[in-house]
Design a protein around this nucleic acid. Structure first.
Lengths: 216, 216
DNA sequence: CGTTGTGAAGGAGTTCACAGCA
DNA sequence: TGCTGTGAACTCCTTCACAACG
């Protein structure tokens, strides 16, 4: 305790705990032990306790963690107590699916605009949002104080789109294009790529099926 | 060298290298140094060399790595040289987007079927594939030798759907539902959750904006 | 008595730095 | 000379094990 820096690996697990806590609250559960949290998250209890210890001391020995209290604490640490405006750039298949995704709102992320460069798409309505011209990006970012951009354009366009978004003032990018994006230090970028995930799965599936699979 | 076990962290980066290699090949580049690969992947050259050393020795000192050779090698290690049949379970917004995603085919993943439990969706056509009754899952898996399942159903249904898929013989799951799935040891499962990604971004964005942001 | 919080040990992944080779 | 391949050092993360506490 006393240390303010939360390890990267811990940060990546906090959303999972939050998920479990929200479900527990809906089910009327008031407290959860580190072991309960671990089972629901697919982890072990020591890891859970270590992770939560970075947030401060919030458990009660012999009892566990207060669901409501821990929910608030994790939300605050993750910066979810403030609403954030998000734009989705690229309204193809994936961008459209994201625009209709209700998980944004439920976690305090407000979709400020959908943007596309294709004139055929501009003006259409997707997931309750009107598609606007990509050229309006800087104005929208400034007017609506947008901090997050979801990039759902083809790989070849991703870097230029990211550059424009960053120049306009966006400080966090969620990139669905299968390319590494170079961004300034003050900008955070995460890339999620379906192909990559499938290929990782492929490796482990292959190993499991391999010669030493059912070896005893 | 000599060790057959490839570290998890390395496996997770191989698809990124593959991506860069394919792009290089399309551009007519014949060799890439570890530094070239590193820059294009957002890593450093020592890490790239270490990673590639686990595959065997494929670079030429003073020159770099042969693009074609390394592409083949990584593809083989990842098990991409064999075509694999994939089913997509759940044809909502995300499932539909995935069904229309061309990245599956390009990497040797063949969409064998789309499945949904909603009668209103069964029989419709999405992304060139007919939506079939979820009850047909076991038959489809057996007949078409399906090894991968993409789960794009609501969180509350994900575990039961996973259980059915595993029982039918699927051995790798890509889960888009925001829940941890419990699967037998011989099954590989990866969960990709948009909310989680956004929340992780939120943490770092908040830190960057915080009191000590531009401190020197 | 049950569960947390945490030092200490152990293991995994990263970076360094340079010998070895084309 | 330039770039790879790799032992060794280092940093980060996980697991253990148990004292502290409600």
């Amino acid at each position: 305790m006393g240390d303010r820096r939360i390890p990267e690996a811990t940060v990546a697990r906090l959303p999972v705990y939050l998920q479990v806590l929200v479900e527990a609250a809906e089910a009327g559960t008031l407290t959860l032990s580190s072991d309960d949290l671990a089972r629901a998250s697919g982890l072990n209890s020591a890891k859970v306790r270590k992770d939560l210890s970075f947030l401060g001391t919030y458990g009660t020995r012999g009892v566990g963690y207060d669901v409501a209290e821990l929910t608030t604490e994790i939300s605050e640490v993750l910066g979810l107590s403030v609403d954030r405006a998000v734009i989705i750039i690229g309204v193809g298949n994936l961008g459209s699916a994201l625009a209709s995704y209700d998980g944004f709102d439920r976690r305090g992320f407000k979709v400020a605009a959908l943007l596309d460069a294709d004139p055929a798409r501009i003006g259409t309505c997707v997931g309750g949002h009107e598609v606007r011209d990509a050229a309006e990006l800087p104005a929208i970012v400034r007017e609506q104080d947008v901090t997050f951009a979801v990039i759902a354009v083809p790989a070849g366009r991703a870097q230029e789109v990211a550059d424009v978004a960053v120049a306009a003032g966006v400080s966090a990018l969620l990139n669905f294009a299968p390319t590494h994006l170079t961004v300034p230090d003050h900008v955070t970028c995460r890339t999620v790529d379906l192909s990559t995930e499938l290929q990782i799965l492929s490796f482990y599936e292959q190993i499991a099926d391999g010669p030493s699979a059912a070896a005893g």
